[in-house]
Amino acid sequence: MANSKQAFERRRDRVRRSIRKAAGERPRLSIFRSSKQIYAQIIDDAKGHTIASASTIENDLKGSLKTGADVAAAAAVGKLVAERAVAAGVKQVVFDRGGYMYHGRIKALADAAREGGLEF
């Protein structure tokens, strides 16, 4: 029987495979969620570099947040990454939730990124 890490990696790989098929030329908004922080970055897979990123460990957000591991923190990160992406000229992305379920912090980040101007 597979352990939870292997199951997570299988889910992540399955999600990324389907995203690469549907993405076309759009960059992907990739999410990493730990128990204490949340990170988001917009990656151009064709060129292999990061266009914009945001996380709860940045000094801009760290002082204004109660903790880096709640829905409010995820929404702040989503809004910040969307602002940085729009400033870099990216409007359309494909959402890569990794192996995480689409609820809670992941959903809050996605909704805030949509409100910030990203389309996915």
Rank of each mutant, 00 (worst) to 15 (best):
Asp45Thr: 08
Asp45Ile: 12
Ala46Gly: 06
Ala46Ser: 14
Ala46Pro: 04
Lys47Leu: 12
Lys47Asn: 08
Lys47Tyr: 00
Gly48Pro: 09
Gly48Ala: 12
His49Cys: 09
Ile51Val: 15
Ile51Lys: 02
Ala52Leu: 05
Ala52Gly: 06
Ala52Phe: 03
Ala52Tyr: 02
Ser53Cys: 08
Ser53Glu: 03
Ser53Phe: 10
Ser53Leu: 15
Ser53Pro: 00
Ser55Ala: 13
Ser55Lys: 07
Ser55His: 13
Thr56Cys: 07
Thr56Ile: 12
Ile57Leu: 15
Ile57Tyr: 04
Ile57Thr: 14
Glu58Phe: 08
Glu58Tyr: 01
Asn59Val: 15
Asp60Leu: 15
Asp60Arg: 15
Lys62Ser: 05
Gly63Asn: 12
Ser64Ala: 13
Ser64Val: 15
Ser64Gly: 09
Lys66Glu: 05
Lys66Asp: 00
Lys66Met: 04
Lys66Leu: 14
Thr67Ile: 13
Gly68Ala: 08
Gly68Phe: 06
Val71Ala: 14
Val71Gln: 11
Ala72Asn: 13
Ala72Arg: 14
Ala73Val: 07
Ala73Phe: 06
Ala73Leu: 11
Ala73Glu: 00
Ala74Asn: 08
Ala74His: 10
Ala75Asp: 00
Ala75Ser: 14
Ala75Met: 08
Ala75Tyr: 01
Ala75Val: 04
Ala76Met: 06
Ala76Asn: 00
Ala76Ser: 11
Ala76His: 04
Val77Asp: 02
Lys79Glu: 07
Leu80Cys: 00
Leu80Gln: 07
Leu80Trp: 08
Val81Pro: 03
Val81Cys: 04
Ala82Thr: 05
Glu83Thr: 13
Glu83Asp: 14
Arg84His: 00
Ala85Arg: 09
Ala85Pro: 03
Ala88Lys: 14
Ala88Asn: 08
Val90Gly: 02
Val90Asp: 01
Val90Glu: 00
Val90Trp: 02
Lys91Thr: 12
Lys91Ser: 12
Gln92Gly: 01
Val93Ser: 07
Val93Phe: 03
Val93Thr: 07
Val93Met: 10
Val94Leu: 10
Phe95Lys: 10
Asp96Phe: 11
Asp96Ala: 12
Asp96Ser: 10
Arg97His: 04
Arg97Tyr: 07
Arg97Ile: 09
Gly98Phe: 07
Gly98Glu: 03
Gly98Thr: 00
Gly99Asp: 02
Gly99Leu: 10
Tyr100Leu: 13
Tyr100Thr: 02
Tyr100Asp: 10
Met101Ser: 14
Tyr102Met: 14
Tyr102Val: 12
Tyr102Glu: 08
His103Gly: 01
His103Ala: 07
Gly104Arg: 07
Gly104Thr: 05
Ile106Arg: 11
Lys107Leu: 11
Lys107Phe: 02
Lys107Ala: 15
Ala108Ile: 04
Ala108Arg: 14
Leu109Phe: 01
Ala110His: 11
Ala110Val: 11
Ala110Asp: 00
Asp111Ala: 15
Asp111Met: 11
Ala112Phe: 01
Ala113Trp: 01
Arg114Gln: 01
Glu115Ala: 14
Glu115Asp: 15
Glu115Asn: 09
Glu115Met: 12
Gly117Met: 07
Glu119Asn: 11
Glu119Arg: 15
Glu119Val: 15
Glu119Phe: 08
Glu119Gln: 13
Phe120His: 10
